[in-house]
């Protein structure tokens, strides 16, 4: 059964204008998105910047308010809850942020950063708390004496591990990882990704993994959804989408992945030209008159595409 079910989620931001600063239009950051996460799986959301993938993730933890739609977590609708009412659920849903530099308060020691959620939810003695933090530092591969250091004494990869440790302390069921590796050096990216997968097994975590790199997403996600302009255009098992993309946007996304293999280069160029042509010719097959993607339709049990 689904751990998280997102049903026709919309997040609209008002644009104010005119004489009295009234609302003249909306930015439809997320415009009718539905998908489901099963326990223990990793679900990826891909798309270009501004496609609404981060907004979707942030709506789940209420960093953005949902305009309409439902966010069902273990059957409970989170979308209507207030900031205060949300508190008990935050224990189960944690987030890992994109920028390891700004996501840790520079004025706090590691011990205070990691203990922040613990202090909000549990009453632990100083000794218990210390033991707990040491345990999690160990889990993310940092030495116990990092406890009294400040974030600026660590590298980007290490900082991201601190952020992960912080998200783990409450033993959450779901972790929303908002581009957790895109701010890191390429050499560290794989390391952190593998490490996230190890943690998943150990703590039985479910990931909602947000990213813009289709290669990364395919590598770590069981299923994925491709977002474009606030809509899902294709959704299903990662392998299936990657090998057999149906929507033109997915095709373009895949075509854009650079290939290091020398001989493949020409083939790739041809593929790109073909896709670009198809995009021009069959635009109406994929988008309606307003440039909005159609609703998803199943083409198999595990694969849905937004076609007319």
């Amino acid at each position: 059964m689904g751990l998280l079910k997102i049903d026709d989620l919309k997040v609209h931001f008002p644009i104010r204008g005119g004489f009295f600063r009234t609302i003249v239009d909306y930015v439809k950051a997320v415009d009718g998105v539905s998908f489901e996460l099963n326990e223990g799986e990793t679900y990826g959301l891909v798309g270009e910047s501004g496609s609404g993938k981060s907004t979707t993730g942030k709506a789940v933890v209420k960093l953005n308010d949902a305009t309409s739609g439902r966010i069902l977590f273990e059957g409970q609708d989170l979308s209507k809850l207030s900031f205060g009412q949300m508190k008990p659920f935050r224990k189960d849903i944690q987030m890992i942020f994109q920028d390891p530099y700004s996501s840790l308060n520079p004025k706090k020691r590691v011990v205070d950063i990691i203990a922040e959620p613990l202090r909000n939810y549990e009453r632990l003695s100083v000794g218990e708390e210390k033991k707990m933090i040491q345990k999690y530092l160990d889990k993310v591969g940092l030495s116990p004496d990092s406890m009294y250091k400040y974030p600026h004494e660590f590298s980007g990869g290490q900082r991201q591990r601190i952020g992960i440790a912080r998200a783990l302390t409450l033993k959450p069921k779901l972790i929303i990882a908002d581009e957790p590796v895109s701010a890191l050096d390429v050499s560290v990216q794989a390391q952190v990704l593998n490490f996230l997968q190890d943690l998943q097994e150990e703590f039985k975590l479910t990931y909602l993994f947000i990213g813009h790199d289709l290669g990364v997403i395919r590598h770590i996600c069981d299923r994925m959804g491709v977002m474009y302009r606030g809509r899902l255009v294709e959704e299903g098992i990662s392998e299936e989408i990657y090998e057999n993309p149906q929507h033109i946007y997915t095709k373009r996304l895949i075509a854009s992945i650079p290939d290091l293999n020398h001989e493949m280069r020409e083939k790739k160029t041809n593929l790109r030209k073909r896709v670009a042509k198809e995009y021009e010719q069959n635009h109406s097959k994929y988008f309606d008159d307003l440039g909005r993607a159609y609703d998803l339709k199943p083409i198999s049990n595990t694969h849905r595409v937004a076609l007319r």
Binding site: V61, L63, R90, Q94, Q98, D99, L104, N105, E116, R166
Partner: peptide
């Protein structure tokens, strides 16, 4: 900054 957003997701009032 993300650390403030992080605090909110951590349940800090």
């Amino acid at each position: 900054l993300e650390y403030v957003q992080a605090s909110r997701t951590l349940g800090t009032p």
